[in-house]
Computed example of a mutant assay.
Amino acid sequence: MVKSLNCMASRGLLFSLRQYISKFLILYSIFMYLFSLIISIAVFLCVRWCENTAISKALKGEMQIIRYPHKRNRLIDLPEDYSVLLNQASHFKCPNSSDDERKHPTLCLLCGVMLCAQSPCCQEQLNGEEVGASTAHAAICGAGVGMFLRVRECEIILMASKTRGSPYPAPYLDDYGETDPQLGRGNPLHLCPERYRKLFHMWQQHCVLEEIARSLELLNVMFPFEWQML
């Protein structure tokens, strides 16, 4: 009786083992089929990719390949002495007018272009609306975001859109460590690397809009100024 029970148990165990093995083999065959299918698709895509003319030239060394990492974007280099910028602004000629006395030479800190800002002679059409030279330039140079230095006023203008902007202290200080907005005191000004680095980080980290909102909140006033005409 005991022997028959042991025999039945061993047969049941053997049957279960066969079932497990058969299931494993079925799963293994399915896995191998899917793996071969993926390999065939990958090979097909690689062949199609290599048939591309540009890719083929790059693989053969017939064209220049972009090397990584790219050079990180940064703001332009400013002169250490502010009088250099004043001299540059004095030689600036408006491309659309000969009356340069009433112009506001404005330097784009992203690309270094000098613009004739806040003047009707250099207004342009942007989405069917008349805007100033700085606003039109910011739409092209910074996707609507701009950092401009108004040279004759010694003031930074931050722009985030056609209708949002705020003034910001220029990164130039006198011998007493103070800024000179509107050049009222007339003291010699020199570039402060720390302040300019702060401007760079603000732009790099996409915090221009946040700084504009914070500035308006601290001043608790909305400037009656048409930023789109800048």
Score class of each variant (00 low, 15 high):
Pro105Asp: 00
Arg67Trp: 03
Cys94Gly: 03
Asn220Cys: 13
Leu59Ala: 11
His206Gln: 11
Glu101Lys: 15
Pro95Tyr: 14
Ile65Glu: 15
Phe225Leu: 13
Cys111Leu: 03
Glu226Asp: 14
His70Thr: 14
Met147Val: 09
Gly184Pro: 02
Gln118Val: 05
Leu107Ile: 09
Phe92Arg: 06
Thr163Leu: 11
Asp81Pro: 02
Ser161Gly: 12
Glu178Ile: 02
Gly112Ser: 13
Leu37Val: 04
Leu107Ala: 08
Leu218Glu: 14
Ser16Met: 12
Pro95Trp: 14
Pro181Lys: 10
Leu199Ser: 05
Leu216His: 15
Ile38Glu: 11
Gly142Met: 06
Asn52Asp: 14
Ser36Cys: 01
Trp227Pro: 14
His91Arg: 03
Asn87Glu: 13
Cys207Gly: 10
Ile157Arg: 00
Leu216Ser: 12
Glu211His: 03
Gly128Glu: 12
Ile65Met: 08
Ser90Thr: 01
Asp100Ile: 05
Met202Ala: 03
Tyr172His: 11
His206Lys: 11
Ile140Asp: 02
Arg150Thr: 14
Ile212Leu: 04
Cys121Arg: 04
Leu158Ile: 10
Glu62Gln: 14
Asp77Ala: 13
Leu86Cys: 06
Leu45Lys: 09
Pro181Asn: 06
Ile26Met: 07
Cys108Pro: 00
Gly184Arg: 09
Gly146Thr: 03
His137Thr: 06
Tyr28Glu: 02
Asn127Asp: 15
Glu211Arg: 08
Tyr28Asp: 01
Asn220Trp: 09
Val84Tyr: 04
Cys116Leu: 02
Asn96Gly: 01
Tyr82Leu: 04
Phe31Arg: 07
His201Gln: 09
Pro69Ala: 05
Ile38Pro: 00
Val151Leu: 10
Ile39Leu: 12
Glu62Pro: 02
Ser10Asn: 07
Ile212Cys: 06
His190Lys: 14
Arg48Val: 12
Arg152Leu: 12
Leu199Gly: 04
Leu199His: 06
Glu51Pro: 00
Glu124Trp: 00
Asp180Leu: 06
Arg150Pro: 00
Glu178Met: 09
Leu109Ala: 05
Glu217Cys: 01
Met63Arg: 13
Leu13Gln: 08
Ile26Val: 07
Lys103Ile: 09
Leu230Ser: 04
Pro181Phe: 09
Phe44Trp: 11
Leu75Lys: 08
Ala138Val: 12
His201Trp: 05
Ala133Val: 06
Cys111Ile: 02
Asp175Trp: 05
Gly128Ser: 09
Ala133Glu: 15
Cys141Lys: 04
Thr53Glu: 10
Lys71Trp: 05
Tyr176Val: 01
Val145Tyr: 06
Ser36Asp: 01
Leu219Arg: 14
Leu191Arg: 09
Leu189Asp: 01
Ile39Arg: 12
Arg150Asp: 13
Ser56Lys: 12
Asp175Lys: 10
Gly112Gln: 09
Gly146Leu: 02
Arg74Ser: 15
Cys7Leu: 03
Trp227Val: 11
Lys60Arg: 14
Pro69Leu: 05
Gly165Gln: 14
Leu75Glu: 06
Trp49Glu: 15
Ala139Lys: 03
Met229Asp: 08
Gly61Tyr: 09
Tyr20Ala: 02
Ser10Met: 07
Asp81Trp: 05
Lys57Tyr: 10
Thr135Trp: 00
Asp77Arg: 12
Glu51Asp: 10
Pro171Tyr: 02
Ser134Arg: 01
Thr53Tyr: 14
Thr163His: 11
Asp174Cys: 13
Lys198Leu: 10
Cys116Met: 03
Cys122Arg: 04
Val221Arg: 12
Ala143Gln: 12
Asn52Lys: 11
